[in-house]
Amino acid sequence: MRRVSTNVLCAVGAAIAVGMATALSPFAASSPDGLERVAEDTGFAGDGRLHELQASSPVPDYAFPGIADERLATGLAGFVGTLGVLLCGIALAALIRRIGRRPVGAST
């Protein structure tokens, strides 16, 4: 395969991520995951609770609020969430790099 530029690779990767989260997440398995299964089977699932900070989560449980259609709500949550994580990740990486390049502190 011909080598692609980093920009193309990132664009394709981001498109795959956003596409998966938007189009496939509504069809993901909804059964309990490994830890939830173990919690139910061994009797401590009831101990779990939301932190008070999570009472006002913008998108609780991956369902975009105000949308009646469950699949649409999940797909939209995936779209917004993946874009949000993408932008946060790039912004944080840029910040870390800027701070890391300053000649302050130890260099090994």
């Binding site: 795959i16 991520a17 956003v18 998966m20 398995a29 909804s30 309990p32 969430g81 993946t82 993408l86």
Partner: peptide
Amino acid sequence: LLGVTAAFVFAAQMLNFPVAGGTS
């Protein structure tokens, strides 16, 4: 790449796949 990797990990984490007996 860091941002794209984070986005991919987030997206793929949403895609629960079934494993044995009513568990994903």
